[in-house]
Simulated assay, not measured.
Amino acid sequence: MQLPTLPEIEAAQSIVYRAMPPTPQYSWPLLNQRLSAGASGNGPIEAWIKHENHSPVGAFKIRGALVYAAWLRENHPNLTTVVAATRGNHGQGVAFAAHNYGLRTVIVVPHGNSKEKNLAMQAQGAELIEHGSDFQASLEFARDLASSPANSGTHAFVESFHPRLVMGTATYALEFFRGVPPLDIIYVPIGLGSSICGVSAVRNALGLKTEIVGVVASQSPSYALSFAQHQIVEAPSRTQIADGLACRIPNRLAMEIIWDNVARIIEVSDEEIAHAMRACYHDTHNLAEGAAAAALAGALREGVQSAGKRIGIVLTGANIDSDLFTSILGSSL
């Protein structure tokens, strides 16, 4: 898969901005102090946070969904329904975008999915189906539903990784790289890969030297293992607080881009993610769901390596159940 070009990303921005404004990027003094303390006196760290938690659905996924829906509407005039599988943020984005384009939305989630994310998707107009014990099972069911003979021509499956999604997510990266001073390193969480591929596209299109570092949950290590072994490696996904990183089988198209563009992938534990969630709230008063806090957890892990540098941290979303966040905020995991 070819990464989107700068004109393509700028065209995608015009689609996104019909539905939402750009999200902000800030450097927070308390967070800089925390990160610099972890650098063991080897130089201060200046961190800039990209606040995708400020989007209309509380996550970056809305961007790719809007670009994907515009493409579907233009190329499939008989389309009435979109079908997607998700743990939450992708589904909210798809439902929001589908509503904007007059389409019905069916979302498949695994059993035991976040209650608050389920309610948020339904509030966006999605019809919810629970199927399977993990995301992979939901994905396979949703794909079969969309492609069944009875739905031929009227239903479309919205992939969780697709060139149009990458084009859409790249719009936040373009805002970020153009809105802050030059970054030495950027930390990006990896779920299925559209976010880090969008960051790679913009870094390359602008001719920047920024080092891209992917972050995954150590309890969901498939992308880290695949990166290290340079082949697709399936691995169990057991993270308890970062459902957006819960991927059992990496996407090959995403991995090919990651192999070519990412400096390294680091693993962070659920305990480190929980600590980063508390740090984000304490230092910036922003909510970060588990997957979103992984980037900060990675930056905290690599404190010495980032000493004296300017770094970017992508806060991909804020959609965490209140009970879980309360327990994490109030105590160690």
Rank of each mutant, 00 (worst) to 15 (best):
M1L: 07
M1I: 02
P4H: 00
T5Y: 03
T5A: 04
E10Q: 14
E10T: 04
A11K: 13
A12M: 05
S14V: 12
V16P: 01
R18L: 04
T23G: 11
P29M: 06
N32T: 13
L35F: 10
A37V: 14
A39D: 08
A39P: 11
A39W: 11
S40G: 04
S40H: 12
G43R: 10
I49L: 15
K50Y: 07
P56N: 05
G58S: 08
I62Y: 02
L72W: 03
R73S: 08
H76W: 04
H76I: 03
H76N: 13
T80C: 10
A85L: 07
G93M: 07
F96Q: 04
Y101L: 10
G102N: 07
R104T: 13
P110Y: 00
N113K: 04
K115G: 12
K115C: 10
N118K: 14
A120L: 14
M121Y: 03
G125E: 09
E127D: 14
D134L: 14
A137S: 14
E140M: 11
F141S: 07
R143C: 09
L145K: 01
S148P: 01
H155R: 09
H155S: 12
A156Q: 06
F157D: 00
E159R: 12
P163N: 03
L165N: 00
L165W: 00
F177P: 03
V180H: 04
D184A: 13
I185H: 10
G193P: 04
G193S: 05
I196S: 05
C197W: 12
G198R: 06
G198I: 06
V199I: 15
S200K: 10
A201W: 15
N204D: 15
L206H: 04
K209F: 10
K209P: 05
V216E: 06
S220P: 01
S222G: 04
A224K: 12
P236R: 11
P236H: 12
S237N: 06
S237W: 02
D243T: 12
G244M: 11
G244T: 09
A246L: 08
C247S: 12
R248I: 11
R248W: 10
I249T: 15
N251D: 02
A254G: 09
A254W: 11
I257A: 15
I257N: 08
N261D: 13
A263N: 09
I265V: 05
I266L: 14
I266V: 15
D270M: 06
E271S: 13
E272N: 06
E272A: 15
I273W: 01
I273M: 11
A274K: 00
A274I: 00
M277W: 05
R278F: 12
A279T: 14
N286W: 12
A288K: 01
E289L: 07
G290H: 02
G290W: 01
A291Y: 01
A294D: 11
A299F: 09
A299K: 02
E302P: 05
G308H: 07
A318W: 00
A318Y: 01
S322A: 15
F325R: 12
G330P: 10
S331W: 07
S331G: 13
